[in-house]
Amino acid sequence: MIPAQFEYVAPTTVEEALTALAEGGEDAKVLAGGQSLLPVLRMRLNVPSVVVDLGRIDSLRGVRDDGDAIVVGAMTTHSDVFHDPLVREHAAVLTEAIEQLADPQVRHRGTFGGALAHADPAGDLGAPVLALGATFTIAGQGGTRTVEADDFFEDLFTTAVQEGELLTEIRIPKYTGWGGHYEKFVRVAHQWPIVAVAAAVKVDGGTITEARVGLTNMGSTPLRARSVEQALAGQPATDEAVRAAAASAAEGTNPPSDLNGDADYRRHLATVLTRRAVLAAAGA
């Protein structure tokens, strides 16, 4: 199918982009990598009057070292984040998640910030980014502001990024030496996850000293499995201990029911996948 007509703007700076968004008002749509937006436009599920393409803003691309954190530009492609040695070293769970995100072609075009701003609860980046406690930089006409991961995802396809604003970069604290794993459950490879679990684990002498666990598609936003995290702290990295801690993975979740499984089944999957993710992250 063919999208409806729209005006197209391709600014080269964030300022120009913000101006274009302001002019476009509520009918403006931001085009990042376009891997979710273009199908929406093609099926005419959304008919924006203006599309603001961020693809020519070079300053939004790349990963940089910022002391105790790494900073990922919103327009960095999944593929570039995947290959980035800083990410691999300091946020291993992200590398793991991106490896399983969509397919190679989509990873070449799709962007880190675009996927997070789209906020599909079945998207693969929300859970690890949430688990790692990232900070989101959002630019608006009045300047930039930062939002913590816990406050970023508000609802289905809804984030703290307001109309007229742009997500510009994502700051991720370094988890150097932590193990990371993304355990994703699908029926066929090109599907969004039915449920997935992101786990980052710090192990010291066989004991899990700290753990961070995020859940994909267990509610209208990515979720943090805090009760699991708490239960894991101080436990040995053994199947038995992790199994016990993971049993509470679905607590407080409100997973959907759809073609791939009902809410009950998803709650069950969350516990199994959490155990597997944590054990894999712990190298056990």
């Binding site: 085009l31 376009g34 891997q35 273009l38 693809g55 190679p104 072609q105 989509v106 070449h108 075009r109």
Partner: peptide, 18 residues
């Protein structure tokens, strides 16, 4: 699928202007 600057992309998911 075509290559855009040497990398595979789905050309139904790229605007010509991009």
């Amino acid at each position: 699928t075509v290559h855009l600057d040497g990398k595979s992309v789905k050309s139904c998911n790229v605007l010509a202007v991009q």
